[in-house]
């Protein structure tokens, strides 16, 4: 019996370690290539760690490429998208969770419908729409498109968080003397922080790594985001892997920081104790 238990624990742990290794290996490789000097990149064959490391790729990317600009653009676009989407999704999700209104069914159906088409199909019509408005080659245009595509899913996400908060809480607040909006702001919103954090994080990373629209709608370097920028390391005759990986590692930093910031809300179950249980 004991032997069996040990065996099962070992198998369990091994599976977890294997999974983590597989999941994190690409990241490790990214880091490894980014610190491998160019002359060792092809000469050393496949090695887990280069015999000599250096930060020249990072220095080059920061000093001699447009990467800092791409980075700033990405930060603006993703940040703006995340904030706008979260505000819209929180209010829309609240409405879907709490109110019955005419056309609710059709609004939900339409929102689901937008999620059903492959984005590639929509690139051309969207370009056609944004072009006369002067919104191609602009970060604003990109933010509008990202917001439009992220709001439906984020709304459903927020709705499920609101559904998890008993509606008696805001009823109690309204009887205590609050308006519905005040009850939303003072009672419901503080309890939805984990949901808001999750939505912010989800939308931010989605916008951060979006390539298709960024590539199709933006042609000037001045308005490029970093996924597009990464492609600039691919030239006709060669791929500058070292610089590309260095840029990639740096691109990971904001997403990591962001999740570090919100992780406390992601894990916390704030509603515990509201009602029986």
């Amino acid at each position: 019996m004991r032997k069996r238990q040990i065996a099962s624990t070992v198998a369990h742990r091994t599976a977890i370690v294997l999974y983590i290794a597989v999941a994190l290996f690409p990241l490790y490789w990214l880091l490894k290539v980014s610190v491998t000097p160019n002359d060792l990149l092809y000469t050393e064959g496949v090695r887990l760690w280069p015999s000599r490391t250096g930060f020249e790729h990072y220095i080059f990317v920061l000093k001699h490429s447009d990467f800092p600009r791409f980075f700033a653009n990405s930060l603006i676009v993703s940040g703006a998208t995340a904030i706008i989407v979260t505000v819209l999704a929180a209010t829309a999700g609240y409405a879907l969770s709490r109110f019955t209104f005419r056309g609710k069914y059709w609004i939900v159906a339409l929102m689901l419908l937008t999620q059903m088409f492959p984005l590639v199909m929509l690139v051309a019509p969207i370009f056609k729409m944004l072009s006369p408005l002067g919104l191609t080659n602009s970060l604003t245009g990109l933010v509008i498109v990202y917001v439009a595509f992220n709001v439906p899913f984020a709304t459903f996400l927020m709705q499920s968080f609101f559904d998890g908060i008993p509606k008696e809480l805001e009823e109690a607040a309204m009887i205590d003397g609050a308006t519905r909006f005040r009850a939303f702001r003072q009672i419901i919103l503080p309890l939805t922080l984990p949901g808001i954090a999750a939505t912010l994080g989800f939308v931010f990373t989605a916008a951060w790594s979006e390539l298709l629209f960024a590539l199709m709608l933006i042609s000037s370097t001045a308005a490029s985001t970093f996924p597009v920028g990464l492609l600039s390391f691919v030239s006709k005759f060669s791929v500058d892997f070292g610089q590309m990986m260095a840029a990639g590692v740096m691109a990971l930093i904001p997403a990591c920081l962001f999740f570090l910031l919100i992780q406390r809300y992601l894990v916390q179950g704030l509603t515990a104790g509201a009602v029986k249980g």
Binding site: P166, E168, L169, E171, A172, A173, I175, I187, P190, L191, L270, T271, A272, G273, A274, V275, K276
Partner: peptide
């Protein structure tokens, strides 16, 4: 009003 679930503000 006193609710069945008490509806206390958890925060």
């Amino acid at each position: 009003m006193v609710f069945q679930s008490y509806a206390l503000y958890p925060h």
